[in-house]
Design a protein around this nucleic acid. Structure first.
Lengths: 260, 260
DNA sequence: ACAACATTTGTACGATGTACAGCAAGGGTT
DNA sequence: AACCCTTGCTGTACATCGTACAAATGTTGT
């Protein structure tokens, strides 16, 4: 990403750009994990003194924020933009695209979920998702709720996956990740936890993408039921994941809600 | 990890306990946010030199890990232990209990999701959840998938909520949080994002707990569909563990029919 | 009383984020 | 062409962080 050997001359006039700094930060995160993006390291990588960074960003938090925006801005909107396709497919495409994009930079993930994601690219993505859900037949309120649910799932699962893994360098390949997960599980005194051990064992056949999609489809099933409730039957979930709405409408909440 | 009754006073003047250190760390996090738990701060709070902490924990990461375990160990298992209640209610109770427990210490949340949660208390919780789902009628594999989905949702939503908020001190009350969320939304150039603006507006009537439960219930709907189809003809995967739908919702019978 | 030992402290080192003051190299004006 | 003023970078400095090392301190078993 960054060009090596480029010498910077002393002087004013635009030696750096914001993007060069963000590139350097991202490179460092990819190589050394979440703690590797120090201001000094970034500056050294682009070939300037540490405090030169503060010409472009007010503080380190701003760099992180810029990085988050940059990552979100890199997701391919075309993947789920086709309004002719069923909405579930479109959401799945979006979820997979986001996961692929963020998993490529695991070191950056903890940093970006550490702060609010309210930049223009984040909002644009949210806007797309909301529109998609409205297209699917949800009213505005439920579309908002559903988008929140989906966002939580996508970012939450990536965050947990990244947290589980050795936090330096790029994410290992999926088979490797499954293996280390199993190692981690078996290294634990699972003696008293038979079901956890069993889960770890059966998990071997379900690599992470499968699991990700399984959870996502359960969520889509739940949302689809609300679509049906709204009276819009233009799209009914079909196939192996098909469901019969009558069977999954939940009952009202349990008595004894929890006090704050 | 420290058992009451076994007093370890073998050293010189004053011997600390792991719990005293964790208490101090948690207090600092509650007061000053995720960055407030410095080793020096913790040591000062318990009244020792900074490096005295390293007698009890090998490094700071171990303190964080101990803290995560301590928090997870504090969740009340009785809330969802009653196997006579419908499984959905039990899951909701667990989810609410976890959320209430973790939201009380927002500063600790980013730290605990930053690393793997594989301590004994975390495993015990996972074990309980898996058992609960198996009781509900899921086979071992799908119980594992479903528990992962639920865990991602619970921790992910708490993490995102915490990230949205000012990262110091205890989480504001829910009305305040909604207000600041709206402020944050309106402070953003939502001009180009009509649906996001609309979502922010309609969100006012749906405080965070409502939203949390809405998403959780969509997930439960999706999982319930798997329970219902577990013994179905279309999906022969059930095999020897196949259960009859009648037993799946517990003794009370199909959803909506069980008595309070 | 003595020795073994567990615990705490003093000191120190390297790394981090960032504030402050100055210096160099344009562009704009004359 | 000579000025200066703005812009961008550097040098230096400080507080704070995690933590390693050895010395000091007190407790306990013999």
């Amino acid at each position: 990403m960054s060009v090596p050997g480029m010498r910077r001359r002393r002087g004013p006039r635009r030696a750096l750009t914001d993007d060069e700094i963000l590139d350097a930060a991202l490179d460092l995160l990819d190589e050394g994990g979440p703690d590797a993006a120090s201001v000094r390291g970034i500056a050294a990588r682009v070939g300037v003194a540490p405090n030169a960074v503060y010409t472009y960003f007010p503080d380190k938090a701003a760099v992180i924020k810029g990085l988050a925006e940059r990552l979100l801005g890199g997701v391919d909107h075309d993947v789920f933009a086709d309004r002719e396709r069923p909405w579930r497919e479109r959401v799945e495409a979006l979820a997979l695209e986001l996961r692929a994009h963020l998993s490529a930079h695991p070191g950056a993930v903890p940093l970006m979920i550490g702060g609010p994601m309210d930049g223009p690219h984040a909002l644009a993505l949210n806007e797309r998702l909301l529109q998609l859900l409205v297209d699917a037949g949800l009213d505005a309120t439920e579309a908002a709720q559903a988008s929140y649910l989906l966002i939580v799932y996508v970012f939450g699962s990536i965050a947990l996956e990244v947290a589980d893994v050795h936090r330096a360098g790029p994410l290992p390949s999926e088979p490797e990740r499954v293996a280390t997960r199993l190692v981690a599980f078996s290294a634990i005194p699972t003696g008293g936890f038979p079901r956890s051990a069993e889960a770890a064992a059966t998990m071997a056949g379900y690599v992470s993408t499968e699991q990700y999609l399984w959870g996502l489809r359960r969520i889509l099933d739940g949302i689809a039921a609300r679509v049906a409730t709204a009276g819009d039957v233009t799209e009914r979930a079909a196939g192996p994941d098909g469901l019969q709405p009558a069977e999954l409408w939940g009952q009202p909440g349990p008595p004894g809600a929890h006090p704050a």
